[in-house]
Amino acid sequence: MKFLIVSDSHGSTKELFDLKKRHFEEVEAFFHCGDSELQQENETIEGMHIVRGNCDGEHAFPDEICKAYGKAIFYVAHGHLHQVKSTLLNIQYRAAEYGANIVCFGHSHIAGAEYIDGMLYVNPGSILLPRMRKEQTYAIIEIINTEAKVTFYDKAGTELPALGMTCELLS
């Protein structure tokens, strides 16, 4: 199973439309980690699991989502309510309350993945306004049995191998 993770598109619909067109057939679900700055009725985000970020005026989006796909239990939040720019501890505690083993968040616009104490953390970066790298990024998490493989891509769909990682998911 594959899952597309995107964040911080800040009103841009072209990039989101391109991602859906490119990956629609191969992914189980699309997760948007907030700051879409779009209205819930916008057809570009139709079918996406989307949370509200600090720049979103749309209050119809939830602050957090938890979804299970077999042994992969996703906790998705923007991260501003968990101070992710300074620590992962707050979001770790919240995800643990849900029994999640994959945490997806945005807010910092910095792409990265790490595996800490049985929990996979993925920040897809920003598809529009990246920080710390020039590439506008998103991520795909592929689950094969108990293994999670995170692959990052630039907005054109070119893989960025230096950012990727693989780990064992604990249930």
Rank of each mutant, 00 (worst) to 15 (best):
G164T: 01
N54V: 03
G57H: 11
A100N: 10
A139W: 03
L169F: 06
M119P: 07
D63Y: 14
A100D: 13
A111E: 13
P124Q: 07
H78F: 01
Q136Y: 00
D56F: 07
F31Y: 07
Q92V: 04
F61S: 02
H107F: 11
S108K: 06
I73F: 03
A95R: 00
E58Q: 11
S7A: 06
E135G: 04
Y138I: 03
I65S: 04
D154I: 07
V27I: 12
E97Y: 01
V6E: 05
N90R: 12
R133V: 06
G164A: 14
V150R: 00
D18I: 01
Q83N: 09
I141D: 03
D117C: 05
H82Q: 05
V150G: 05
K67N: 10
I73C: 07
I127P: 04
D35C: 10
M48E: 02
L160R: 05
G157E: 12
C104Y: 01
F152Y: 13
V84M: 03
I144T: 11
V51D: 04
V51M: 12
F17L: 14
S7E: 06
A96K: 09
F17I: 11
G112D: 04
M165P: 11
H107Q: 09
C33I: 09
I50K: 00
V103Q: 11
L129D: 07
C66T: 15
A77F: 01
K149N: 15
Y98E: 14
A95K: 06
R22D: 08
E147V: 10
